[in-house]
């Protein structure tokens, strides 16, 4: 794969740089370049070997196992598409998981992305000291370990929880509400908590991005007829920040598909009526508990393509910024 890709590249530039390579074949030139660049391979190898073992290989193996029945004890048995067929036709809980994951990701993904972008922009207008304090405030929830458990304490089932206690004292409710047991409350609460913890790497990327925009551009834009801050953001700032927005989007999308752990910690597994059951939960149920590796791999493959698909879609959308 690697060599094939490499073999194509120098040929496409053949016209631009007529050098000694004219005398060689494509493959000969590539080998020559590879020999010259052996230090590069040598330095990149340790990382790439581990990366291959722990990231590339698992993806390829998952795709293979997803066509089999595999319980880790006996050798895998080839059943082709049966896992996928039973996922979509027989497994009602999987369909709930898909629905929940899609709703959850389509709210928290764009939500966290827009919050990060908007607040990074607001914060950028502050004085440097205030800016670093505000950055800390917004970023802290995403790094403070299990701090989201405090939400469980705030929404405790009895009157000692601060939310129930205050609502009861104010006379809004007479009985404490079991927030984390009632499906009506769980989903919105989880989304709020997910957004609370989601101003992470992409937020920092935007904070840094706004600072790198050249100030002179704003004066030039004002002369060209930019009249308010929103126009300035859309036509001047964001196009300059497109690379950062690209990277921020990747981080936000990957994050929005990965909140399963927080959900389990807050509402337990399985959640009441499967109201917060996501594909991640289904995956760890079959892969971790039931040891049905073939079936679990099929779930993993679907999740993989959902995430890659969402990323490629968003990259397309981001091309429209500033137009």
């Amino acid at each position: 794969m690697n060599e094939n890709e490499a073999a194509v590249r120098p040929a496409s530039r053949k016209e631009k740089r007529p050098t000694a390579r004219k005398d060689m074949t494509k493959i000969g030139w590539t080998l020559h370049e590879m020999r010259r660049g052996k230090m590069g391979y040598f330095l990149v190898a340790p990382f790439m070997i581990l990366f291959f073992i722990f990231t590339v290989l698992p993806v390829l193996l998952s795709i293979f196992f997803s066509f089999t029945i595999f319980n880790m004890l006996e050798p895998p048995e080839w059943i082709f598409l049966d896992n996928y067929i039973s996922l979509f036709l027989d497994d009602d809980i999987f369909l709930i998981a898909v629905k929940n994951t899609l709703i959850f990701a389509s709210i928290t993904g764009p939500g966290s992305y827009l919050l990060s972008l908007l607040f990074a922009w607001f914060i950028n207008e502050l004085t440097p000291k205030l800016r670093s304090v505000m950055t800390l405030f917004f970023y802290a929830p995403s790094i403070s370990g299990g701090a989201y458990m405090i939400w469980q304490l705030m929404f405790t089932t009895d009157q000692h929880g601060i939310v129930n206690g205050l609502l009861m004292k104010a006379g809004v409710i007479s009985q404490p509400i079991a927030f984390f047991q009632n499906p009506d409350y769980i989903f919105p609460l989880i989304i709020v908590i997910a957004l609370w913890t989601s101003l992470g790497t992409s937020f920092l990327v935007f904070i840094a991005g706004f600072q790198t925009v050249n100030r002179d551009l704003y004066e030039a834009a004002a002369i060209d007829g930019i009249r308010n801050r929103w126009q300035e953001l859309w036509y001047v700032t964001l196009p300059m920040m497109k690379p950062q927005m690209m990277f921020g989007a990747i981080m936000a999308i990957t994050g929005s598909f990965g909140f399963g752990g927080i959900i389990t910690a807050l509402v337990g597994f399985p959640s009441p009526d499967y109201c917060a059951h996501t594909i991640m939960h289904h995956l760890s149920d079959y892969g971790g508990t039931r040891m049905e590796m073939g079936y679990a791999s099929a779930i993993a493959v679907i999740l993989f393509f959902m995430m890659i698909g969402a990323n490629l879609l968003v990259r397309k959308l981001l091309d429209k910024v500033g137009k």
Partner: peptide, 9 residues
């Protein structure tokens, strides 16, 4: 573009 859930198994 994808997280470690996919590679976990």
């Amino acid at each position: 573009m994808f997280n470690s859930t996919v590679t976990g198994i």
